[in-house]
Amino acid sequence: MVFFGRLARSAHVKLHDHCHEPAGVGNAAMEQVRRLGLTERELEVLRHMANDASNRRIASVLFISPKTVSVHVTRILAKLGASNRGEAAAIARRIGLLD
């Protein structure tokens, strides 16, 4: 489903909300994602952040600019109430977003 979400985004096509649910996230974690207001892309960036990837590396993997990654990181930190990338990764692990 992630492939179709990416394809739709690249074509500027809006899918129904249930089509945007992040892959690989259980029901309890999905509720946390919704509660926190994380987007699918933010969750993707968060997963890469948790693996110590730099903004440049994340940008390369996700085919977006490093500046866009920076914006996502800033929003992720705010939504998780984290002060840095390591803390965000720890919070995400604790609430089951990285399983």
Rank of each mutant, 00 (worst) to 15 (best):
H48V: 03
G86L: 07
H12W: 00
R56A: 15
V33G: 06
S10F: 03
I91H: 07
D52I: 00
L97N: 02
G5P: 00
V13W: 00
V13N: 01
F63D: 14
I58T: 15
L62H: 03
S54N: 10
V25E: 01
R57N: 14
L7W: 04
R6L: 07
M30F: 08
A90N: 14
R93Q: 11
T68E: 15
D52E: 15
A89E: 10
D99N: 12
G96D: 03
Q32S: 11
L62D: 01
T68I: 04
S54M: 11
L80R: 03
K14H: 06
M49W: 04
K67Q: 10
H48D: 08
N27G: 00
S10I: 01
G5S: 14
N55S: 14
L98W: 01
A90S: 15
D17M: 01
G86T: 11
S83A: 12
E21W: 00
R34N: 11
H72Y: 15
S60W: 10
A92V: 06
S60E: 14
S70P: 07
E31R: 14
N84P: 06
A50D: 13
L62A: 09
E87K: 12
P22V: 05
H48E: 11
F3G: 01
M1A: 11
A29D: 06
P66V: 04
L97K: 02
F3K: 11
A53S: 13
V71W: 09
N51I: 00
G37Q: 07
L98A: 04
R47Y: 07
A92W: 06
L15Y: 05
A88Q: 04
Q32C: 03
E21R: 08
F63C: 07
S60L: 09
F63G: 06
H48I: 04
L80S: 09
L80A: 12
I76P: 09
P22C: 01
M1Q: 08
N27I: 01
I64M: 14
L7A: 12
F3N: 02
K67S: 14
V2C: 00
V61L: 13
F3Q: 05
M30S: 11
S65Y: 05
E42F: 07
L43M: 08
E42M: 13
N27E: 12
V13S: 01
S70M: 04
A50T: 08
G96R: 05
L97H: 01
A59E: 14
R94Y: 03
R56Q: 15
M1Y: 04
N27Q: 07
G96L: 13
L43A: 04
T68S: 15
N55I: 05
L98G: 02
R56S: 13
D99R: 05
H18T: 08
E42T: 08
A59R: 07
K67A: 15
E44W: 10
A82E: 02
I64N: 05
D52L: 12
V45I: 15
V33Y: 06
H48A: 14
L98S: 03
G24I: 00
F3T: 08
R75G: 06
R35W: 08
R35I: 10
M30L: 14
H18S: 11
G26D: 14
V69S: 07
L77T: 10
E87H: 11
I58S: 10
A89T: 04
V69D: 00
L36N: 06
